[in-house]
Write a protein that binds this DNA or RNA. Structure first.
Length: 644
RNA sequence: GCCGAUGUAGCUCAGUUGGUCAGAGCAGCUGAUUUGUAAUCAGCUGGCCGGGGGUUCGAAUCCCUCCAUCGGCUCCA
């Protein structure tokens, strides 16, 4: 007999060799019907694998992440089986589950699949699912496995197996389709009740640009038809929040092919929004001891040779601008840090002067690959809320923590709760990608890890994601469709101070090298605004929104009073418009609601007589009659409440 | 950059197998209306059907190419 510990810590005795499915059946009929996989001592396994030792287990259903993962992983196999039936000769790469569904990378030879073919494949998947094909696991010695795929002519699987350690390799067979796979899988295909193929994409074999591009087919499955319907509705809703759509509707920004792709044009409303954000951050930074600086949009090639950017990115940048007579070469500024290093060098600093914090909303230009451009989140010209802190080595941790505080303060003010934190370290096996000594890197990475721990942030550590000059702490958020974007970033850098030979005079009257912290809480204003638009679905907080109120006169007769109200509100610095069209009030309200203006002030006979406004709040409705002073106070109170 | 898809008025979209197929709604303009909490009525303007080339008696529709956009991949200082 073995002891099985259930998630509620109760321990039950079972005969050795019992399976997950049998345990589920012993608990309840319903659980047995819904269970998808089992986690045994932290490892997700097939429900029909015997358990032979004492173990802590968890039975995973659709409501568990691991249950969904098992379902989707198995679905990928079924999709592959369907594709193999419909497109004989297809070769298969990898087919994992992902956050929302699964994909399979396939090589169709000279054939291709497009969304027109999806319904045929979906039907075939459901047909296989209904056959209730069991997933049968077999372990095969490595050389036999290689033989199997060599005979089949599937070079991708041969490639995968060749990289595996010698020994036995597990395979799963369902119906006619056998796949190299670690598992785990469903007991059989029957839980798959609804399927939707989402899109196809090109994907390089093993993520390597120099290798062949396979066709990646994305799909998602559900145990109930209704869930698929809900998922598709959710996707539709998410699309409504897309910043590209709202940006057009609210006239925030636009692109022009004539100006150039990836070069955003900020329209008046968008510029207002952005300026409000900038004002907010400038205030925060001034309080935190930052000094504004301004540097030009281009810089001499030598500047970037010194910084190392030329070596690293010179080839992939906008190509240099040459002066007509001297042939001197200049680059469009891709980074502010080299300029800020030179600003630091203008003056001699004592150890008592540090830290020096130089801040600039610096617009930078980077040649992003055309296929990478995406609305405002990935552009070729953007403005960083950049600053560089030059400090003594003993100040690094304290300064780093202060920056984390600024980022968190900003996220809190903007109601961004759903972010993740990532520590990006150097890839220790590919050191040639980076500049600087091992010693400097170790110090920098240690500083980030310690500061993050001290702030109690739970950060994911990813190696190989560091900048070429130093490790980073990145703040990531998801967009409406779940795509991850990096916003704030804080980087510790011992290398650029070396390259620029930055110095300060220590208490020992000797020259010392400062440490640099690169930091940008928003990251890029463009990207930040994009994410903000999606976060608020265009309903910005009152202090940020371009237009805070709109006055709606009932008829032309009250135009004079409306203008009087406008003047009063302007004096109180409430951003206010008037809708003077000879439209009915209902129409004016509708249009103001569509424009997502927070307050509508309706003025007619009563209001003029009583020196009041009738206030309607966006999305909420009529709030009743207010004197101008009362309304102003309400606006100010709300702004203060949001910004405190 | 790569794979795939898309591109019709400012916006959202119709346009059957190439043959009155250049349309609708909203927006805009003009006029009427003077309006009380999500759409007043009427009239009108507006498009080289992304650009260029080709096939055809004839192309929004088929082919080639370029550009842009969308979904991914790769990249992201």
């Amino acid at each position: 007999m073995i002891n099985i510990t259930l998630p509620d810590q109760t321990i039950r005795e079972f005969p050795s060799g019992i399976t997950g499915m049998e345990i589920a059946q012993s608990i309840s009929e319903g659980l047995a019907r819904n269970v998808l996989s089992i986690t045994v001592n932290g490892e997700v396994m097939d429900l029909n694998r015997p358990i032979t030792t004492d173990a802590a287990i968890k039975l995973n259903t659709w409501d568990d992440k691991d249950g969904k993962a098992t379902m989707w992983h198995s679905s990928a196999h079924i999709m592959a089986a369907a594709i193999e039936e419909l497109y004989p000769g297809t070769k298969f790469g990898i087919g994992p589950d992902v956050e929302n569904g699964f994909y399979y990378d396939i090589d169709l030879g000279d054939k291709s699949i497009s969304s027109n073919d999806f319904s045929e494949i979906e039907d075939k998947i459901l047909e296989i699912a209904r056959r209730k094909e069991p997933f049968i696991r077999t372990d095969i010695p490595k050389n036999e496995a290689l033989e199997f795929y060599r005979a089949k002519g599937d070079e991708y699987k041969v490639d995968l197996i060749s990289d595996l350690e010698d020994g036995t390799i597990s395979f799963y067979k369902s119906g006619h389709f056998t796949d190299l796979c670690r598992g785990p899988h469903l007991v059989d295909t029957s839980p798959i009740k609804a399927v939707k193929l989402l899109n196809t994409a090109g994907a390089y074999w093993r993520g390597d640009e120099s290798r062949k591009q396979l066709t990646r087919v994305y799909g998602i499955t559900f145990p109930k038809q209704k869930m698929l319907k809900e998922y598709l509705e959710m996707l539709e809703e998410a699309k409504k929040r897309d910043h590209r759509k709202i940006g057009r509707e609210l006239e925030l920004f636009a692109f022009s092919a004539k100006v150039g792709q990836g070069l955003p044009l900020w329209l008046p409303k968008g510029a207002e929004l952005r300026e409000n954000l900038e004002k907010f951050l400038k205030k925060v930074q001034r309080k935190a001891g930052y000094q504004p600086v301004i540097s030009p949009h281009i810089g001499n090639k030598n500047l970037y040779i010194t910084s190392g950017h030329y070596d690293k990115y010179g080839e992939d940048s906008f190509q240099p601008i040459s002066t007509p007579s001297e042939g001197e070469e200049f680059f469009l500024k891709p980074m502010n840090c080299p300029h800020h290093c030179e600003i630091y060098k203008i003056k001699q600093y004592s150890y008592k002067d540090l830290p020096v914090r130089l801040a600039e909303f610096g617009t930078v230009y980077r040649y992003e690959q055309s296929g990478e451009l995406h609305g405002l989140t990935r552009v070729r010209g953007f403005t960083q809320d950049d600053a560089h802190i030059f400090c003594r080595p003993d100040q690094v941790k304290e300064e780093f923590i202060a920056v984390i505080d600024i980022v968190l303060h900003i996220f809190r003010a903007l109601d961004f709760n759903d972010y993740s934190v990532q520590i990006s370290l150097r890839d220790p096996v590919n050191k040639e990608k980076y500049i600087g000594s091992d010693e400097n890197w170790e110090k920098a990475e240690k500083a980030i890890i310690e500061a993050t721990r001290e702030k109690g942030l739970s950060a994911e550590v990813v190696t190989g994601e560091a900048a070429f000059y130093g490790p980073k702490l990145d703040f990531m958020v998801n967009d409406a469709l779940g795509r991850k974007w990096q916003l704030g970033t804080i980087q510790v850098d011992y290398n650029l101070p070396d390259r620029f030979e930055l110095e300060y005079i220590g208490s020992d009257n000797q020259k010392h090298r400062p440490v640099m912290i690169h930091r940008a809480p928003f990251g890029s204003l463009e990207r930040f605004v994009a994410v903000m638009i999606e976060h608020y679905a265009g309903n910005f907080p009152l202090w940020l929104t371009p237009d805070q109120a709109i006055i709606l006169p009932i008829s032309d007769k009250y135009a004079d009073y409306a203008k009087k109200v406008l003047n009063l509100l302007n004096n109180y610095e409430i951003r206010t418009l008037i809708d003077e069209r000879s439209e009915k009030t209902g129409k004016k309200i509708r249009d103001a609601e569509t424009r997502k203006i927070p307050f509508m002030l309706i003025v007619g006979e009563k209001e003029e007589a009583g020196e009041t406004v009738s206030v309607r709040k966006h999305g909420e409705g009529d709030l009743g009659s207010f004197s101008i002073e009362e309304f102003v106070k309400m606006v100010e109170d709300e702004v203060n409440r949001l910004l405190q």
